[in-house]
Amino acid sequence: MDLTPITLTLKLAAITTLLLLVVGLPLAWWLSRGRSFFKIIAEAIITIPLVLPPSVLGFYLLLAFSPQHGLGKWLHNAFDIQFVFSFKGLVLASVIYSMPFMIGPVKSALQQLPISLEHASYSLGKSKWQTFINVLLPNIKPSLLTATVLTFAHTLGEFGVVLMIGGNIPGVTRVASIAVYESVEQMDYTSANFYSLILFAITFVLVIGVFVFNKYRFKTPLE
């Protein structure tokens, strides 16, 4: 059995999760402080993928990054970057699509921390970044773990959005969920079951793991 769709899926999920840790954590922190109109709009945009049909998101990403016109054409001409029908495109779509799963739990946990913790750190002369790394993040470990695992697991299960922007190119954009769909279309239920079972096992272990870990390891008075 061809394991490439599984390895491609795991690679996509890992890269997406790493990128979202880098981009999403500061963004979640920014959103957790204050409620300006601009922040409300930004949060709404980040949350939209939760409720929007993935195919709709994928369709607009396809239009936006099509090398024939607009942004996609400019990226192609200026930087030789093409997102459509490429692994880069899958990563971009996955980052957008899974962003609320990283930002939601982290933002909510940061909001629950007393503001005096931040102030106490500032009073010691520590910068915002030092405070974020040394005081805030360590005190939201359970939520951080939940957000990381949810992001990873959610990316494993993407279908509509990655099909729209990436298509079904073996070894490049043919992730496990698309391999399942294609196998069923070809009446190859053995392959479909193989990929499905692996995806199910991975997500089951991840979700059970995070519940067990949070219950026994990181319980703090603030959680």
């Binding site: 102030h119 106490a120 500032y122 002369g125 910068s127 005081v135 360590p138 703090t220 603030l222």
Partner: peptide
């Protein structure tokens, strides 16, 4: 001036201890 530049010792009513 931000709090970092004022270098003030502050004892908070809720203590504001870092749980970690």
């Amino acid at each position: 001036l931000p709090p970092q530049q004022r270098r003030i010792g502050f004892v908070f009513q809720d203590y504001a201890l870092f749980p970690n």
